[in-house]
Structure formats: structure tokens, C-alpha cells
């Protein structure tokens, strides 16, 4: 872009300005009602620099991320479109990207996608024509060369701020940094990480990132999932691939809930309170880690808590950015 930005989105400008960025996740409905997305957009737009719209997350069919992004735009929120490689080949993906740009979407996140085995259509055939790194390459080529994968020209402008995900807690641990470097080399402008609970491990990873100088080449937003109950913590610990929840966190949530005794309501309240406290601590801790340029809150089904958390974390109000 002529102004020096790649897409000129709010997220890009915040990061370019060296400010601490905040993004959050918006899960679209398993249906056709546009209101839930719009409502979440309304609530969070002023608290976040961009809102991720998930792409059939955990392989469960939902309203598509392209439409979700369009709905957010309608309420004045800044969308970030997630794209997974599982369901579409290079033809469909490039076509969706064109559509998204035409509707004013500027932030994109390139992902492999959870395996369909975990979703509601486990008998589906997956696609994986290209992988997530190749998807980054594709978007970069579309933006910088204005060409499709096949080499033909794209008409019109293709402003895109390209993101990728990384999971510092998956294995092989040493290879995760190599993979991050590959993503950067492929063209990632920013990274949103998997939820961080094990801060020391995350810090170790960040050190490896910084040692390689990668923090200078890409903006890293640490993922944070606020937890409401000890059950959710345990579920995440045992059943969500790639999320590492230390035992102490489960214990801490449990202890808080126990203060509520037999009263279910009270229990839930104590749990929520502790969850928010924990989230705030996590945000505070990751902020201190060199190379971390922002946080990404994934409060699936608990989006209403996000502004409050950010408020308490001292991240509100969001800084202003120049228009255009």
C-alpha cells in the first residue's frame, strides 16, 4: 500500500506503532442467525484491535468465517478471517480470499485446521491440498505479486495482513521455533499462539524465538483462554490437542470453587472470579516476556467477559490509530 502498510488494518497499525495489541475470538453460530455475531462484535469492537472469526473450528460446521467477518464489518468491528486447509483446495481458498478483500477484510490467519475426526462430520474426506505454510505463501504471493498460485494475474488491490498460528507447547519442542521461522519466511506478519498456561515453558520458547531474532521479524500475540470452571481446565488439560494446562491451575480452580461449598451458584461465581484472576495474572506475566507484542483472548462462549478482563488488565481504552 502506498502508505507503507500491507493492509492498513487497525491491528497492523497498532503493532507497527509498537503498541501492545489485543485480539479476541468470535465463534460464529451453528445456524443462520446473524445476530450473535453482530452482538459479540458490538460488545468487543472497542476493546480489541481485531476479532478473529473461526473457520469451522474443531471441524464442527458453523456459519462460514467469510460471512462472519462481513457481519462484524456491518457493526464497525475489525474482523480477522481464519482460513483452514482442511476443507478447501487452492481454488476455493483463493476465491474466498478475493471475496473477503472485496468486503473489506484485511486480517487473515492461516491454519492447518483441526482434524475432522474431532468434529461433527468425522466421515468427511479432508482436502489439505496445501498446508498452512503454503497457505501463507499463497496469500503473500497474492498480495505482493498480485498473482494466483498458477501464476495468472489478479485484478484489483490485495491488501492483506497475514497471520499464522503457532503452538509453543506441541512437540517436537525444539522444532517449533524452526517451524515458526518457516512461517515467517513464508510471509507471516503476525503470530497468534495457542493458549499459554505454562508461562515458564512459553518464556523458554520466546527466548529461543528472540535468540534467533525472529521477534524482530514478526509480531507475536500470546494466546490466552480465560477459564470459568475447574472442569473446563481439566477438559483442556486432557482432551484438547496441543494445550498444556499445568496441574496447579486445575487445583487452583478447584480450591476456589470449593469455597462455594454445596451452593452451585456460589461455586460457579467463585470459579469465575478465580478464572478472571488467573487470566489477569497470565496477561500480566506474558506482557513481561520480551518479544510478546500482544495478547489474543479466546473466550469461547464467554465473550462477554472479555471487555471486563481487558479493563482490569489496564489494556483499555485501546490506543487510537490514524485513519486511512
Amino acid at each position: 500500500m502506498s502508505n507503507g502498510y500491507k493492509a492498513g488494518t487497525r491491528l497492523e497499525k497498532i503493532l507497527a506503532a509498537g503498541k501492545f495489541a489485543v485480539t479476541a475470538e468470535v465463534g460464529p453460530p451453528k445456524g443462520t442467525d446473524p445476530e450473535p455475531v453482530r452482538k459479540k462484535g458490538e460488545k468487543m469492537k472497542s476493546a480489541c484491535d481485531a476479532l478473529n472469526v473461526t473457520d469451522n473450528q474443531t471441524a464442527i460446521v458453523r456459519l462460514c468465517s467469510l460471512a462472519g467477518c462481513a457481519l462484524l464489518k456491518q457493526v464497525g468491528a475489525e474482523p480477522l478471517m481464519q482460513i483452514v486447509c482442511r476443507d478447501r483446495n487452492r481454488i476455493a481458498i483463493q476465491s474466498d480470499v478475493l471475496g473477503a478483500i472485496s468486503l473489506g477484510v484485511g486480517n487473515f490467519l492461516c491454519l492447518s485446521g483441526d482434524h475432522q475426526k474431532f468434529g461433527n462430520h468425522p466421515t468427511a474426506k479432508n482436502v489439505f491440498d496445501i498446508d498452512s505454510i503454503q497457505l501463507i505463501q499463497t496469500l503473500k504471493m497474492m498480495r505482493d505479486e498480485k498473482k494466483f498460485i498458477c501464476g495468472e494475474d489478479i485484478s484489483g488491490n490485495t491488501p492483506m495482513f497475514i497471520g499464522a498460528a503457532e503452538n509453543p507447547f506441541a512437540d517436537p519442542f525444539e522444532f517449533r521455533v524452526v517451524r515458526l521461522a518457516k512461517k515467517i519466511k513464508a510471509g507471516a506478519d503476525f503470530i497468534q499462539t495457542q493458549a499459554v498456561y505454562d508461562v515458564p515453558k512459553f518464556a523458554r520458547w520466546m527466548k529461543m524465538v528472540c535468540d534467533r531474532g525472529l521477534d524482530k521479524q514478526v509480531h507475536i500475540l500470546a494466546g490466552v483462554i480465560p477459564i470459568r470452571t475447574s472442569g473446563a481446565a481439566r477438559y483442556m488439560q486432557t482432551s484438547v490437542p496441543g494445550v498444556a494446562v499445568p496441574d496447579e491451575i486445575v487445583k487452583r480452580m478447584k480450591a476456589a470453587e470449593d469455597k462455594g461449598g454445596a451452593d452451585k451458584k456460589l461455586k460457579a461465581e467463585y470459579g469465575r472470579e478465580e478464572g478472571i484472576k488467573l487470566t489477569l495474572e497470565l496477561i500480566e506475566q506474558v506482557k513481561q516476556i520480551p518479544g510478546v507484542h500482544g495478547v489474543h483472548l479466546m473466550a469461547v462462549g464467554w465473550e462477554e467477559a472479555v471487555p471486563g478482563i481487558l479493563e482490569k488488565a489496564g489494556l483499555l481504552p485501546r490506543p487510537a490509530v490514524e485513519a486511512g
Partner: peptide
Amino acid sequence: AKHLFNGPCGGSV
């Protein structure tokens, strides 16, 4: 399971 060419996905544990 995802025919990835460039390294493991985030689910490798």
C-alpha cells in the same frame, strides 16, 4: 493425518 509438508501441526504431543 493432515498430509502436511512443512512440519507437524500444533496437535503433535
